[in-house]
Every structure is written in C-alpha cells, then in structure tokens.
Computed example of a mutant assay.
Amino acid sequence: MFSTEKSKENTIPQCISPYAITKYASEKYLDNYANTYGFKYTVLRDATIFGSRHN
C-alpha cells in the first residue's frame, strides 16, 4: 500500500504496490473530472481492518 511514514494531507503519496498506484490514479481521475465539471468531492482513505471474524 502507501508508505507508512506520517504525512500531511497534501503530500504526494509514495506508492509502493500496484494496488496503491491504482487507488492513487483513481483519486487523480476524480480530481480531474471534478475540476473539469466543477463539483466538490471527498475521498475517504479507510484503513484495512482485521478482526476476530476476518477470514
């Protein structure tokens, strides 16, 4: 996934896996689309949660 170093919200991620690259690319596509058509959006970067019922 992304680097585990702490960073500010506007820091460009250092993608270290193909999965992270596709997630970041999707955010950039959304950003471009929003700027082109003039709307606001929010990206939630949820952490992967492992618990007692995780298989």
Rank of each mutant, 00 (worst) to 15 (best):
F2N: 01
F2K: 00
T4G: 13
K6C: 13
S7G: 11
K8F: 10
E9G: 10
E9F: 10
E9C: 11
N10H: 10
T11Q: 02
T11I: 05
T11N: 07
T11F: 04
I12F: 05
I12Q: 08
P13V: 03
P13N: 06
P13A: 02
P13S: 02
Q14F: 14
Q14R: 04
Q14D: 10
Q14L: 15
Q14Y: 11
I16G: 05
I16V: 00
I16Y: 03
I16M: 00
S17V: 09
S17Y: 12
S17K: 10
Y19V: 03
Y19P: 14
Y19Q: 13
Y19R: 13
A20I: 02
I21K: 01
I21R: 02
T22L: 10
K23C: 09
Y24A: 11
Y24L: 09
Y24V: 06
A25K: 10
A25D: 13
A25V: 12
E27A: 09
E27F: 08
E27G: 09
K28I: 05
Y29G: 06
Y29C: 04
L30M: 04
D31A: 14
D31T: 10
D31F: 09
N32H: 15
N32R: 14
N32L: 15
Y33C: 13
Y33G: 13
A34Y: 07
A34P: 06
N35G: 01
N35P: 01
T36I: 12
Y37Q: 02
G38H: 09
G38W: 08
F39M: 06
F39H: 06
F39Y: 07
K40G: 12
K40A: 03
K40H: 11
K40L: 08
Y41E: 01
T42D: 05
T42F: 04
T42Q: 07
V43F: 03
V43E: 01
V43G: 02
L44C: 13
L44S: 15
R45L: 07
R45E: 10
R45N: 07
D46C: 14
D46L: 12
A47E: 15
A47T: 10
I49V: 07
F50W: 12
F50H: 13
F50P: 12
F50S: 14
G51Q: 00
S52P: 00
S52E: 06
S52V: 05
R53Q: 14
R53W: 05
H54L: 04
H54S: 00
N55C: 14
N55P: 15
N55E: 12
N55T: 12
N55L: 12
N55A: 14
